[in-house]
Structures are given as structure tokens and as C-alpha cells.
Amino acid sequence: MDNLLVIDQLTYKRNMRVLLSDVSLTIPTGSIIGLLGDNGAGKTTLMRLIAGAATNYQGSIILDGEVDKTTIKGMVSFSEQLSGASNDARMGDLAKFYDSIYPEFSMTNFNLLAKNFDLNLKQKLSQLSKGMRRNFVISITLARRARLYLLDEPFDGIDSMKRKKIIENILTWMPDNASVIVSDHHVSDIANLLDQVIIIKDRTVVNQIAADKIREEYNQSIEEYYESFYKEENDND
């Protein structure tokens, strides 16, 4: 498999704090990667940098051979891309906005997704519950035919039936040549989905390993394996 995303020695500081320190990783084309780590470990920051929301970093982010931020923005669909949209906008208006701005956005796919999630597109963002907003965000994010999907805690505040629906939609709409990075702290939700896990701790990547390798070689569930990284620290305290 080719590498879709190559990150090399990425370091990012903001507000006099180190938010990411010396992160290097590669992500193969056509894979689903779990980005695991505690809150504040740097998961969202890493996604922000890949998506192009932040620019003042050291190191390199190369997506399918491209380094230009504008080009990369067109190839990445980030679940935080709706943050800052006006709350007085209707979901339908926002979908139209996407349709007019992003060439790779598919209105047909969006409508299928919205129908699947029972979204009423006439509703305004301000009227949505947390769960409905998440479903809308997922619909917009997956309706873009991107090369890389960044899903930041997509199951937060979603009940388990709906979680399954989100997972099914990810599997249905993910293009063959695309990869997905999904962050979560309920590892068990997505454990079956993952090709690999990347464990992020203290603002850097501490391990990247194939999911079935964890089961085969360590005889552990992903959750146990992931927790072992955080336990060590607690034991040392």
C-alpha cells in the first residue's frame, strides 16, 4: 500500500506552550486509523494541523505528495470544518454553501446521508441537539469525496444505536483511495473498524501499530493495549 499521509518531525507551539512535539507518522492509502489518547494529549491539535487550520509549525505534512496548504485543504474533510458556521443558518443552506464551494462535495450523497440520519434540513443549527448536530457534521464531512477524513470524537454524545449508524456510513461512503483518521476515547466503539492505532500521549506519538498485531502478538484487546500506555504513567506517579 502507498503512503497517503507522511508527517515528519512535526512540532507546534502556541500561546507559549508546546502542543505537539516531534510527531512523525505515515498513513497508508485506504486505511482506517484510530487516533487514541487522553483529552489534551494533542489529538485535535494534530488534526487541525493536518487539515490546514493552523500554519505556524515546524516539520512537514505531506498528503499524497502535496505540501501546498490550499491544495491539501481541498483533499481533507475534517469534522471540525463546520465550527464557526452561523447558528442562524439552516442545514440546507449550509449544504448549498458546501455544494457551491467544494467541487468534490456531492449533494446526492449528502441528501442520502441526511435522510439516513433523519435530518430535517429546514432546521437551523441553533435548533439542533448535540447528537443531531454531530449527525449533520458527519453527513457534510462524508459527502465530500476527500482523500483523507479526519473525524474528531465523532461518537461523543451519541447513543450506541446511532454510533453503529455512523460507523456504517463511514464504511459506506469512504472512497477506495481515501483513508480515515478517527479519534475517540471510547476505544471499544471503533476497535473492530481499525487497521492501525496511533497512540498519542504527552503531545507526541508514542506508538503506531496494526490492530490485528495487538490481538495476535500481545493477545490483548486494543483497549487494554491502549490503557497500558497510560497505566505506566499512573504507576510511576
Binding site: 491539501i72 475534517f78 470544518q81
Partner: peptide, 15 residues
């Protein structure tokens, strides 16, 4: 002014 600092606008792939 909101447009300059929000993901919704800043992630649009333009120069």
C-alpha cells in the same frame, strides 16, 4: 471579522 478565524471559512481551499 468572524470569517478570518473560523474553520468553516478558513478551511475553504483558496489562496
Amino acid at each position: 471579522e468572524r470569517v478570518w478565524t473560523r474553520n468553516f471559512y478558513r478551511l475553504i481551499p483558496v489562496s
